[in-house]
Write a protein that binds this DNA or RNA. Structure first.
Lengths: 337, 337
DNA sequence: CTGAAAGCGCTTACAG
DNA sequence: CTGAAAGCGCTTACAG
């Protein structure tokens, strides 16, 4: 059971190995019938290209660079796993680098990935998706790149995201439909676009059910647990207590639950709490937090496909779809009723 | 600035490319002087081998397999980042696979990595380090492998770990030295060796300071937040409250803090809480948890080196050191005084 | 201890 | 639209 190679297919098809190579790389100049025959044969023989040979003979590196702020961030590692998987099937490899907090490092990291590692494509993870200098550089050197959940200049690249607005709307509506009337919200970091989208989804869901969102039920947080603590202390010391809190992420939701427990409020009987992101934390604490699951793995898989599959070629094809909105999942658990 | 290759070094050194290749691969049969000259030259020219060429011409795959239970587990992703980094410098690639809870899948995953992916080496992450069938298979096919923090049959492979016993001793002693006299412990999952080691470290630290550890101060947990909740409820309803709790991991420590807060106990003024692992959770909650940081990244780097650097050759060299104990770090934060 | 030859499986560039 | 030739940078196997 040795590996099948181009030559094997060529022999069976009665053509030269070059023709097979062209079919495999989706190059245009092959007769339609020949193409079909070869494609069928390749599938039948379960052909997969030898990455090393390909890399050695071509000018491509078969490396995809991923740039992020912290490699240990939860969403980054989830993304990484999906990316690693898809790369394995497409014969690519991942190089990942982090700015480690210094957002200024982003530009030099991107430069290094381009010039040293010579990546064939790049993925920008939030919040590094919106640095004008980086976008300008990438466009200048004409390296295909995909951004995950970008905020600005959406047409600058292909991008993959989910509908934060609608998800926030949905989870708020879940609270409304299960009978909550006084729903508070803790807004996320004010510099990130998603905070705004989630806040807007919350507001619109309330409005379309003719519920009020009085200003004292809106607190500004910044996505940290501590900011959630501060916000929840305020919300839970109001004369008229909210009967539900929608926090813009799970960490702030966990903090809100902790304050509620301290105040001897039963969750979810006296107050429901919901979060966003479905991080580990959401199912670590007790009760487990109802939240929104981002399709991070699928986002990663799609991003790699966009970068590595010739039919998606980002460079030459102006007709290619740039915007990819992936479905999310509402995870209802014990923190809300 | 094009890449230097074997031929370039060979020309400068006045030898054949073969000799250079031998030096690079640490093969024995090269004259000492020639070897030195070539090594110096290689360093000077900043030579690094072309992975693709190497892979294509050799029978090696230059893939290292990592087997774990959940790729999303926090410690796995931290490990992964270190491994990825070291692989990049050594010209190897990572393939990672998970049993996703079904421990029975471990054997088939390992088989696939051996026969399909043809990995050159393998890393077993806990708790998959101690499956007799897997160990037997790996030994039979003679594939080098490294285990991280194994529990049983320590001589079966090289392994990398930290000193859980001593770390537990240290953090308990920290509590003692800062004046705590009634220190409780929540034991981890009883099936994992580390729970025992940490428990033992706790006991010995108390004993050597002539402090008591009465049975009602010892609770059995299982590393989950929920088990921490249950254990802490019991500890904090005792007539004589403990003035400190050492939980065998951060999740249980976070749970203990939550119960303490509910009971209106100030942390750390009325009770200190410490954990183990330094997961994200430890610095997410407030106050942040004092804990032990495992050197996961260094463990990964070392494991990859053991597997990929010829001087560590695990297969042929019986004199190679099998046991590698890496230093940990005690992280003191706001949850203890 | 050292080297000349062949080949790994592809792609690039050229020829028809 | 199709193919024959050369070569990517290494290693393996053989010869001395």
């Amino acid at each position: 059971m040795s590996k099948v190679k181009l030559k094997d297919i060529a022999d069976k098809a009665g053509v030269s190995l070059m023709t097979v190579s062209r079919v495999m790389n989706n190059e245009p100049k092959v007769g339609a019938k020949t193409r079909q025959r070869i494609e069928a044969l390749a599938k039948e023989l379960n052909y997969s290209p030898n990455v090393a040979a390909r890399q050695l003979s071509s000018s491509k590196s078969y490396f995809i660079g991923i740039v992020c702020e912290h490699v240990n961030a939860n969403y980054v590692s989830k993304f990484l796993v999906g990316a690693l998987k898809q790369c394995r099937t497409n014969g690519y490899h991942i190089v990942i680098d982090e700015t480690a907090g210094e957002i200024g490092k982003a530009l030099s990291i991107v430069k290094e990935l381009i010039h040293e590692t010579k990546v064939d494509g790049m993925i920008l993870l939030p919040p590094l998706t919106d640095i004008p200098e980086v976008l300008a550089l990438l466009k200048e050197v004409n390296i295909p790149f995909v951004r995950i959940a970008p905020d600005i200049d959406l047409l600058a690249s292909a991008y993959v995201c989910m509908d934060d607005y609608q998800a926030a709307y949905d989870i708020t509506e879940h609270l409304v439909k299960s009978g909550h009337k006084r729903i508070a919200h803790i807004i996320g970091n004010e510099n990130q676009g998603v905070s705004r989208l989630r806040y807007q989804g919350y507001l619109d869901a309330l409005r379309s059910h003719r519920l009020l969102s009085p200003p004292e039920y809106i607190e500004q947080g910044d996505f940290t647990y501590k900011s959630g603590l501060v916000a929840a202390e305020k919300l839970l010391s109001l004369t008229e207590l909210p009967d539900a809190i929608f926090a813009s992420n799970d960490e702030m939701a966990a903090a809100a639950m902790s304050v509620a427990h301290k105040n001897r409020l039963d969750i979810p009987e006296q107050i429901s709490v919901v979060g966003f992101d479905d991080t580990e934390l959401a199912s670590t604490v007790w009760p487990r937090i109802s939240t929104i699951r981002q399709p991070l793995k699928d986002m990663a898989i799609l991003a790699i496909k966009l970068l590595t599959e010739p039919e998606n070629s980002l460079t030459n094809n102006p007709s290619v779809v740039k915007r990819h909105i992936l479905p999310y999942q509402v995870c209802l658990r014990e923190s809300s009723k």
